[in-house]
Simulated scan of single mutants.
Amino acid sequence: MKKTALADISLLFVAFIWGSTFVIVQKAIQFLPPHFFNGTRFLLAALLLFIFMKKKSKFSINLLGAGMFLGVFLFLGYAFQTIGLLYTTSSKAGFITGLSVMIVPLFAIWILKDKPRSIVFLSAFIGALGLYFLTVGDMMSMNIGDLLVFFCAIAFALHIIFTSKFSSKHEAIPLTIVQLSTVSLLSFISSTMFEKTSFSYDALFNRDVIIALVITSIFATAIAFLIQTKFQQFTTAARVALIFAMEPVFAALTAFIVINERLSGNGLIGCLLIFIAMIVTELPDIKEIKGIKQKHGM
């Protein structure tokens, strides 16, 4: 199997894991505050990867810098997403997070110096229209949770962009460990600052919390980010974002199956428009189509 195909399948598996854990996390943060939950989750994941790390692996200064840099964007993404889940639904959070698939190509033009493509701006417009139907059109006013999850989409887009930049330069496991450790540290600091009296440590032994920590720390964090860091070097940032566009679909399906969560008519229209925007992002421009025709003598 070609490396690109293996990368696509592996990253799709990551999208499935992330999408299916929205409901689990939403249940857990009813007992544990978001920052403390994330701190615990990412600490367990980092320790798990450290146990399986090869002895010859090294943490160079450049690797530490790259990992901490990626970790900051990862922390912001999960902080905005987890807190946003306190105020919005799993389905909506999944689709709003999916907006990162359009943000990535826009940022790639600026950061990675990719060539600008007109189709990207069309998809951004469709996505913005979908976001309107999903949030304002669905609820008559922008929910604070929706706004926080939108900031999460921006942070995740930047994480994808910079992972493309650094993943080929460093070993996957050490780079992932530094990222996850950075998220854990920043989450615990945030919890100390903002969540001092909001929970009891007995909540750690709640059944829903234990299930959420085990599933998210092992599968949605340690394994998922190791796969992303390892395989993203074999594909483009825009393609990774397109594959991750399946995450909100998995989130909506899981929310429907597990807690019978349904979207209104406007909400469904918004989800459909956002999903169309995700697909449109990867369509070729008119210039590219003409170039293909000329190449084949059409």
Rank of each mutant, 00 (worst) to 15 (best):
G94E: 11
G145W: 13
F156N: 04
I17M: 15
L283G: 08
P105K: 08
V240M: 14
E195T: 00
I292Q: 12
S118R: 11
D208T: 14
A224K: 03
S168Y: 11
Y201N: 08
V25A: 14
S167P: 03
F75A: 00
T192G: 15
A237Y: 06
D285H: 05
T4E: 15
S181I: 04
F219W: 12
F95Q: 03
F73Y: 03
L122E: 01
A79R: 08
G291C: 03
K92N: 15
P34M: 07
P284K: 06
P116Q: 09
Q30L: 12
F95V: 01
G297T: 06
L180E: 10
S190C: 14
V280N: 03
R41P: 03
I173F: 11
I257E: 10
A93N: 14
D208H: 13
G291S: 12
K113L: 05
S141K: 15
F256L: 14
E288N: 09
F188G: 05
S141C: 02
I160P: 05
D146L: 09
I111H: 07
F52W: 10
F52A: 05
P284H: 09
L273Q: 09
K54M: 07
K293V: 00
M139R: 15
A222M: 12
I51S: 00
I279E: 02
V136N: 13
L129P: 01
F80R: 02
